[in-house]
């Protein structure tokens, strides 16, 4: 699973890099100023708590407490769904404010990046529900908690990708969008030692 996560690092890394590279290039249409920080910070908090639930589910299973494990597994899946709900709401909100992948560059890069992340979260939720039902028909028990551990690794990975997206794209992006384009770029150029 770590190999898969290593590869996914490249996957999301490229998505985020493309978004950063294209920052400030959109000519027309809404850009970072459309981002609604309070709601997204709540959804970030929800995703963090789902990571906590995931870990509790895993430790419950390892200690053989099936009831606890099932409860936290369901909790993780539900929190995940709440996060997806926020995303859907945010996309709908953007759509009627005129931001779709078609309108401008920011729309394309931002929505497709968060879209791919949302799809990963959805796959995670599906996986969690399958595990949840598997605990009932005896396929998942204390013995093979490794299955749940792998799902846990995947879920935490999806969470830390969101941490990066939230930090870099939402906060740094939305923080007085215009004048930061040069700074982020210069910072990168300075690091790379290019004049």
């Amino acid at each position: 699973m770590w190999a898969f996560l290593g590869s996914d690092v490249l996957f999301f890394g490229t998505l985020i890099a493309t978004h950063l590279v294209y920052r400030g290039q959109s000519v027309s249409g809404p850009t970072e100023n459309i981002l609604d920080i309070p709601i997204t910070s709540i959804s970030t908090f929800v995703l963090l708590m789902s990571s906590l639930a995931m870990v509790l589910a895993l430790s419950g299973l390892q200690r053989g407490k099936m009831g606890e494990a099932r409860f936290w597994l369901a909790a993780t899946a539900l929190l995940g769904s709440v996060f997806i709900g926020f995303q859907m709401y945010e996309f709908a909100e953007f759509a009627n404010e005129g931001l779709t992948p078609r309108t401008n560059l920011f729309g394309s890069t931002f929505l497709i990046m968060t879209g791919f992340h949302g799809t990963h979260v959805a796959i995670g939720i599906l996986w969690l529900w399958s595990l949840f039902f598997a605990t009932f028909n005896g396929k998942i028990h204390q013995g093979n908690s490794l299955e749940v551990e792998i799902a846990g690794l995947y879920w935490h990975f999806v969470d830390i990708v969101w941490i990066v997206i939230f930090g870099v794209v939402y906060l740094v992006g939305a923080y007085g969008a215009e004048e930061h384009v040069e700074e982020a770029g210069h910072a990168a150029a300075a690091i790379f030692g290019i004049g």
């Binding site: 290593g6 690092v9 890394g13 890099a17 990168a188």
Partner: peptide, 19 residues
């Protein structure tokens, strides 16, 4: 190693692209 090696590669590529 399996996780941080790609992390380093990706961060350096991203910085290069930004530059």
């Amino acid at each position: 190693l399996l996780f941080f090696a790609p992390m380093i590669v990706m961060v350096s590529i991203a910085v290069a692209l930004l530059a």
